[in-house]
Design a binder for these strands. Sequence first.
DNA 1: GAATAAAATGTATAATTTTGCAAAATTATA
DNA 2: TATAATTTTGCAAAATTATACATTTTATTC
Lengths: 164, 164
Amino acid sequence: MQNYRIFIHIIYIMKNKTERLHAIKELITQQSIGNQDELLLLLKEKGYHLTQATLSRDLKQLKITKMPNDMGEYRYTLPHSMYSNNKPSETKIIGHNSLEFSGQLAVIKTRSGYAGGIAAEIDEHASDAILGTIAGDDTILIIPREGFNREEITAILSTVIENL
Amino acid sequence: MQNYRIFIHIIYIMKNKTERLHAIKELITQQSIGNQDELLLLLKEKGYHLTQATLSRDLKQLKITKMPNDMGEYRYTLPHSMYSNNKPSETKIIGHNSLEFSGQLAVIKTRSGYAGGIAAEIDEHASDAILGTIAGDDTILIIPREGFNREEITAILSTVIENL
DNA sequence: GAATAAAATGTATAATTTTGCAAAATTATA
DNA sequence: TATAATTTTGCAAAATTATACATTTTATTC
């Protein structure tokens, strides 16, 4: 009887829809999934219990679609795959400066007057990943090159800034 | 008998697959299409005779997918429609300056100190295609207007810069 | 806490899309 | 040309996905 109650509880925790949507996104990006039954199975393994109908509605809400890849197979993919690898942005502190992303762009906030100097350093030491920077007084706009994701950009900028 | 030969000729002209793929793309962008039968009908009106099976294969080749729009309806759309016309970005050299794209934005690197001047020229002579510019010391951020693709922006900027 | 409204889900089924296979059309080659 | 190789297509059926409707769950209001 006790076990039964615990079981119910676990189901309850897992059943949260938002969480499930997250799990779906994650599976879509990590695995190569060709149809909803396949995805359904993976979700079952992760403890989500739902039917194909619900999954169809979830995918609709997430705007996830079945797209042909270059090998002529249909695969589910997130919309605008260009930035799909990117986690939602969090502010990262590097020394006296903060770094945060928005869409394809990154912004660094510095102490007043420092933006120009730091931007120059970035231009000089990170030009393979950074297409260009524009500095105000305490703000630097960073335009990354295409093909670099947030993680990579963060790593490069951290190194540059820490070596000042 | 003569009529018969003409008829054959017309069919031949229309049946070209490449042309049909073009027509499909065009219809997809211009109209709001929710399923293949609908699209099939429009194609028939334009003189293309094919079955739904062939259409399915055409859409696969074009990587056109059925996507939910914001009103919760499924509509066929071109892949990443915003940038779909755009080739991957390469650096282009124009005089002493370089031009490269990242996502919706373009960046021009100039000789040190020239960014402001060149940006002013761009603002003055390319305002139909360029929404705005922001210049640092040697970097100009270009924000193109919507509806212009990279090729067009490149052409316009080249002209402006070469005429300095 | 009961009543009511709103949201989420399952079931069953309809709607839609994809595909194996064979035939037709097109292109390349001897 | 004729023939072989390749590509495209239609047909029919299988596979997949979306949805109407009923039910359950969750949130809200009194």
